[in-house]
Design a protein around this nucleic acid. Structure first.
Lengths: 191, 191
DNA sequence: AACTGACTGTATTTCATTTTCGGTCAATTA
DNA sequence: TAATTGACCGAAAATGAAATACAGTCAGTT
């Protein structure tokens, strides 16, 4: 059986984007890594952007798998949510491609890298949104706009898990879970 | 009475930083605007950074005044908080200096501009923190870490008032207040 | 028919030169 | 003689022209 050139290209591209980011990945580079003529890439992907989109979609699928692996219908919504958010952010900050793109956005503001990470964030929000809808249907949560709620939950989690430590001691995973529950689920008003 | 050169310098600097940002404000520029020899600036401020700090402190004091003007001890904590956050963010996005610095951070990442805005954010959090402490003492809020809570409140408000509209229709001020109450005060769990 | 890599025009990088700017201090002013 | 000034300094940044690198093409090869 002949080699699957498309697969070679995708693997080479994934490696290169993760190692060098969007801008510093060249089509010549990918072609060489994949042992393929540059023209061959253009028979599968019409340009660099499309190739990058393919890689980002793979990353998003990977993250969904990680999240699904953590989900357990027997647990409470809150328990699942906390575990999933923790796993997703942990995965993201360990995954070479996500880290590299974040640096690229910070250091150079590469538009395509910004777009890629936005798409990733949207995917995460979409995922959480679905879980929230289920929880609302099960009367586990008050009725609320699932999209805004998912957005707020991710932002709150990011604020506690990531932004807080920019100027303070990092919060432990359990502390974050506790705060998350206090602020968003129980609320701050006296009983 | 002789002219108050320090005051002239501070006024010129405030104008220049607001008009051109940190980087594009030159000491020669400030001296000329203030009708003062450049050396004179250095008898009051030991360098550009200190002059900038003075201007930032003035801005912070101004914001505190705006917030205090909105505060009314007779209203509920939540009502006050919403009004204050709205006024502060509104003030900030209308104040030339704050806007200019935000652009400078976005476009060029000027370290001193980043530092200045961080200081401003810290001041806002400190202000809210004090109000939260009062509310806790009055048994209007559950006991909680006032600093983290202030941080979370600001972040949530910013997420709803500013970040949300990056990819969606902006939320009305009243809608934001309603969501703010739902998420942080009442909580999402069913009664 | 599938694949290749030399080729092309544009975009980016490089680098030597010029200009700008924060900060100093000897001269000047009041 | 204390306060004020602006010419001056070295370091840093802007400039621009020449060199290089790149995405995408396509005539030629397998």
């Amino acid at each position: 059986m002949a080699v699957d050139r498309r697969k070679l290209i995708v693997e080479a591209a994934a490696q290169s984007f993760a190692l060098f980011g969007y801008k510093a990945t060249t089509m010549d580079q990918v072609a060489k890594l994949a042992n393929v003529g540059k023209g061959t890439i253009y028979t599968f992907f019409s340009n660099k952007e499309e190739l990058f989109d393919e890689i980002m979609n793979l990353l998003i699928r990977e993250i969904k798998q990680v999240a699904d692996a953590e989900y357990d219908a027997d647990r409470t919504f809150f328990d699942n949510l906390n575990r999933i958010l923790h796993r997703i952010l942990d995965f993201r900050e360990k995954h070479q491609l996500a880290v590299k793109l974040a640096h690229e956005v910070r250091d150079m503001g590469t538009p395509k890298a910004i777009e890629g990470l936005n798409k990733l964030e949207e995917a995460i929000i979409g995922y959480i949104q679905a879980k929230i809808q289920i929880a609302i249907d099960k009367r586990e949560l008050k009725p609320c706009d699932p999209k805004i709620t998912a957005f707020v939950m991710l932002k709150l989690y990011l604020a506690l898990a990531s932004e807080w430590q920019h100027s303070h001691e990092a919060l432990a995973k359990e502390k974050i879970a506790e705060l998350f529950k206090l602020y968003l689920l129980d609320g701050l008003t006296m009983a």
